[in-house]
């Protein structure tokens, strides 16, 4: 029993550690990718309790910076199948629990 508890604890500490943004899939170029990632991080930190607002902010900022027709999804659990313009997708995890998809398609 004692061992189990210890294990759990370590796991939990690990979990706490893993909050950095983790890019799962992206075919953007380097510059765009970092910018988009930073944006997602700021948006999620700013609206930590409201995913809708975070997604809105990501979408609007991306529209401004890289041209129209961006889409953003922020959530803790969802499935998606999307068609995107090549070199314009970013799928990342953040904060240990959030999944963020940002893509462009007009």
């Amino acid at each position: 029993m004692a061992e189990e508890v210890v294990e759990k604890k370590t796991e939990e500490t690990k979990r706490v550690i893993h909050t950095y943004p983790l890019i799962r899939h992206s075919d953007m170029n380097e510059e765009m990718r970092t910018e988009a990632m930073e944006l997602c991080v700021t948006a999620c930190e700013k609206f930590s309790s409201n995913n809708e607002n975070a997604a809105k902010m990501i979408k609007e900022t991306m529209d401004k910076k890289f041209g129209a027709s961006w889409h953003a999804v922020v959530g803790e659990g969802f499935g998606f199948e999307i068609t995107h313009e090549v070199k314009n997708i970013l799928y990342m995890f953040f904060g240990g629990t959030y999944g963020i998809v940002v893509w462009k398609c007009s």
Binding site: R15, F78, F80, E81, I82, T83, H84, V86, F93, G99
Partner: peptide, 16 residues
């Protein structure tokens, strides 16, 4: 412009 499709699932265990 060329397009591609991508699909995945976001779940807590996958993130973990």
């Amino acid at each position: 412009p060329p397009r591609a499709t991508y699909s995945s699932n976001v779940t807590q265990w996958e993130i973990y």
